[in-house]
Amino acid sequence: MTRGHSTALVLACYAIGILIEILPLPQVLVPFRPFVLAMFLVYWAVETPGLVGYGTAFALGLVADLCSASMLGEQAVRLVLVLWIVQRFRARLRFFPLWQQAVAVGMILFVDRLVVALVHLSFGLPQAPAVSLFAPLIAIALWPWLYVLIDLARLRARERN
């Protein structure tokens, strides 16, 4: 059932996710930056559930928090909640066709935006501009490509083994 995995590939995915998080963008595009780290986490949680636990999500979020200047624990909360939703619907997500999966991921990331708004509200931080609600739409457009890309990389890795 599972297509095998290589630890290097998983780590590379997470590293890319964190890099995209702090990659400089033109000021106009900043609110549209999708939460790619969460998308990678969703992929690995759906495909290799034994490998991705809440500890992973928490640690990943903490590293991302340390690299960026967000509040310590903010992205940890977001990733833990994303993982929780994914694990609720994992069986269904696993067998969705790709476009339906993309929409589901987009909705998860939309919930994530609400979590961000709630966290910022409760700690009195400035709110993200309203256009950042479009970031999940970009994530929807991105998801099929991401999925196919990682699948190909995994196949390549398995062939090498």
Partner: peptide
């Protein structure tokens, strides 16, 4: 499946408060 989730959720919220 919810218990560890709650544990890590609490941990990160505690971290946020500590940071804040």
């Amino acid at each position: 499946s919810t218990l560890p989730m709650l544990f890590y959720l609490g941990l990160s919220i505690a971290l946020m408060i500590a940071d804040n």
